[in-house]
């Protein structure tokens, strides 16, 4: 069995003004080939105006098992949202 080419993650900007968004992954021998394969695989119908590719091994991801510890502290901080504050109806533009 041949060893696989490196895995790359592909991010596409659908049109200028929007952020790049993850769309999938692919294998390629180098960065240039990754861009070309991303073009052929993910933009056959004008889905993008810009592509980022990054080696999957370079992505550092949080562990789902730690999701509670990471995200739970934000749960009881409702005062971070504007709806937490009572302002009388008469007050405008706030």
């Amino acid at each position: 069995m041949n060893e696989d080419w490196a895995l790359y993650e592909v991010f596409i900007r659908a049109r200028s003004g929007l952020e790049h968004k993850h769309v999938g992954s692919l294998h390629a021998a180098d960065a240039r080939m990754a861009l070309e394969h991303a073009r052929d695989t993910y933009t056959r119908r004008q889905e993008g105006v810009s592509i980022w590719v990054v080696r999957s091994s370079e992505i550092i991801a949080s562990d789902p098992e730690e999701a509670e510890a990471l995200f739970e502290p934000a749960r009881d901080k409702v005062y971070r949202h504007p709806t937490f504050y009572d302002i009388p109806e008469e007050v405008k533009n706030i």
């Binding site: 041949n2 080419w5 790049h20 021998a29 180098d30 960065a31 080939m33 990754a34 861009l35 980022w52």
Partner: peptide
């Protein structure tokens, strides 16, 4: 297609040796 895959891998290796990486030229995030 084997020779194409092998050639692409060899080219990538050579390129890496010369530039010590090089991916950043293509994907400036």
């Amino acid at each position: 297609g084997r020779w194409v895959r092998e050639a692409a891998a060899a080219y990538a290796d050579k390129h890496r040796d010369r530039t010590g990486g090089g991916a950043e030229r293509y994907a400036q995030a």
